[in-house]
């Protein structure tokens, strides 16, 4: 039998960015081993900006080399870097007034210990450069080495960024009991102590009557119900999509429930056999194979990891007119 999971998943996508007339040349120059600032009135801004931060006026791109040396104006020491940080070992984040620039650049300084304001630092370029702010980092001037950088080919006009967030949380109390029940081959709902309505899966409270529900309100529901709505989906391809063939997603009103469970996956039935009013029963996976890791605190579904399929019970269909207002 599977264990109850702690929710842990990473949501990430390879977003693209149009770099535009100012950031594009800035990133192209970084790839080619140079830092550029942008003239804006009588100042040089680094990084350069598309629009004057004081007036909102458009800044005609006028990019000039700055650095590679600069002076630290402030810093903080990162003693325990995360995997997202530019260095695995402790380092400093610093505001660096690059030579020739009037605004400080925030960047990483690779140093043996905390970096004082006033420290002279020098840009160093990484071997692998892609046209990103992480192509460069800084070191105390004495540690700098001479570098020969071969420029790249095309200007950096579109960049790609795998941006993600890792979500870790405990299932909240009702969801834990719901997940355990699924592992046991049972469906757990809750009956509102105020309205008597049965919610499945419950949120642990009745959102209509605004009352909490406790373990005393738990009710087991039969794993049999009626199709109240569905659609047949032809999958669109996107990042992480593994589906290629059409499939049905439906909502099933379990016997005794007052709202349907949604997103139920149907692979072996098709219209016209599959229809609103059809009576279905859950065919569970063997206990050792049941998996609730897809469950989170929000989804209103029964995770696919616990059932093999839903099969017709053979009972007469329910008249769809009796199911009006249950579609989800």
């Amino acid at each position: 039998m599977g264990d109850l999971p702690v929710i842990d998943y990473t949501l990430s996508f390879p977003y693209t960015r149009t770099t535009g007339p100012v950031m594009g040349p800035f990133l192209t120059a970084l790839r080619d081993g140079q830092i550029l600032g942008g003239r804006c009135g009588d100042r040089v801004l680094c990084p350069p900006l598309e629009y004057d931060p004081d007036t909102g006026a458009e800044v005609a791109p006028d990019l000039v080399p700055v650095g590679p040396g600069g002076t630290v104006t402030g810093s903080t020491w990162v003693s325990t870097p995360t995997e997202k940080h530019p260095f695995a070992e402790p380092f400093a984040f610093a505001t660096i007034a690059l030579d020739g620039a009037d605004t400080p650049l925030i960047h990483a300084v690779k140093a043996p210990g905390p970096v004082e304001a006033g420290t002279r630092v020098m840009a160093q370029f990484r071997d692998e450069r892609v046209g990103a702010i992480t192509d460069v980092y800084f070191v105390p001037e004495a540690d700098a080495v001479e570098q020969t950088i071969a420029p790249g080919d095309e200007p950096v006009e579109i960049t790609e960024h795998l941006i993600g967030v890792r979500i870790q949380e405990d299932l909240y109390p009702f969801r834990k009991r719901y997940a355990q029940a699924l592992l046991d081959g049972k469906i757990l709902g809750q009956r509102s102590p105020k309205s008597g309505k049965v919610y499945v899966p419950s949120r642990g409270y009745d959102n209509m009557e605004r009352v909490p529900m406790t373990e005393a309100d738990d009710v087991f529901l039969p794993d049999i119900g009626t199709v109240v709505s569905f659609t047949e989906i032809t999958p669109i391809q996107y990042h992480g999509q593994t589906e290629t063939d059409p499939y049905i997603r439906c909502a099933i009103l379990l016997d005794g429930a007052d709202q349907p469970v949604t997103g139920i996956d149907i692979r072996d039935l098709r219209p016209p056999e599959f229809k609103v009013g059809l009576r279905l029963r859950c065919v569970w996976r063997p206990p050792a194979e049941r998996d609730v890791s897809e469950l989170d605190n929000r989804m209103g579904a029964i995770p696919e990891g616990v059932y093999e399929r839903w099969e017709p019970t053979g009972e007469p269909d329910v008249n769809p007119d009796e199911l009006r207002g249950q579609a989800w």
Binding site: L11, S12, F13, Y15, T16, R17, T18, T231, I233, P235, I236, Y238, H239, G240, Q241, T242, E243, Y247, R249, G263, D265
Partner: peptide, 16 residues
């Protein structure tokens, strides 16, 4: 710059 169907499917395969 992104993908709405991916985002509206919670970043998971088989989204609606």
């Amino acid at each position: 710059e992104g993908n709405a169907t991916w985002a509206l499917s919670g970043g998971k395969s088989g989204g609606q």
